Amino acid sequence: MRRRLPSHFFLNDLATGKLQKIYTSDERPDITKTPIPMWSLINMKKYAAMSIQYSRGCPFDCEFCDIILLNGRIPRTKTPDQMTAELQALYDAGWRGGVFIVDDNFIGNKKKVKEMLPHIIEWQRQNNYPFTLFTEASVDLGGDFELMGLMSKANFNKVFLGIETPNPESLVECGKNQNTRFDIAECVQNIQQHGMQVMGGFIVGFDNDTEDIFESQVKFIQNMGIVTAMVGILEAVPNTKLWKRLKAEGRLLTEGTGNNTDTHLNFIPKMGKNNLIEGYKWIVKKIYSPHYYYDRINTFVKNFNPTAKAKFSLADFEALVRSIWRIGIFSRSSILYWKLIIKTFFVKFKALPSVIELAILGVHFQYITKKITQTRT
Rank of each mutant, 00 (worst) to 15 (best):
A310H: 06
S40A: 14
L265P: 02
D144L: 01
K286V: 00
A359C: 15
T254A: 11
L41I: 11
Q193I: 10
I372L: 04
I213E: 12
P75L: 09
Q82L: 09
P168N: 03
F182T: 07
F145Q: 06
V363R: 13
K370V: 07
F206R: 08
I120V: 15
G362P: 09
T369F: 07
N303A: 04
R4C: 07
P168Q: 05
T344Q: 02
P238H: 01
N239Q: 14
Q197G: 03
V159Q: 08
E211N: 11
V99Q: 00
V159C: 09
K343R: 05
V172W: 00
T263F: 04
P238K: 10
R376D: 08
W39E: 07
N109R: 15
I221K: 06
G279D: 01
S354V: 08
T16Q: 03
L161R: 05
F60Q: 13
K158D: 02
C174P: 01
I268V: 14
Y337A: 01
A236H: 03
R96A: 09
L70F: 00
Q124Y: 14
F349Y: 15
F349G: 03
S40H: 07
K309G: 06
E136K: 02
I360T: 14
F9G: 00
K343T: 13
I22T: 15
G279S: 03
T228R: 15
L252K: 11
A93D: 07
Y280P: 12
T135G: 05
L90Y: 05
N105S: 06
K110L: 01
C187R: 05
I356F: 01
D26M: 15
Y293N: 04
R125H: 12
W282M: 13
L14Q: 11
S55K: 01
V218H: 02
Q374I: 10
K348D: 03
Q189D: 12
N177H: 10
Q124F: 15
A93R: 04
R28S: 03
K370H: 11
S289E: 08
V99S: 00
R332E: 08
V204M: 12
S331G: 06
G328H: 02
S170I: 03
K273H: 06
T369P: 00
K285S: 15
K33R: 12
I31M: 10
A248W: 03
I297T: 10
N274A: 15
F160N: 05
F214K: 08
W282A: 13
Y129I: 04
K281G: 11
L352N: 02
R2D: 14
E318C: 10
G250D: 04
V188A: 01
N179I: 02
A236D: 01
S51P: 04
D92W: 09
P306M: 00
D104M: 00
M196A: 04
K21W: 07
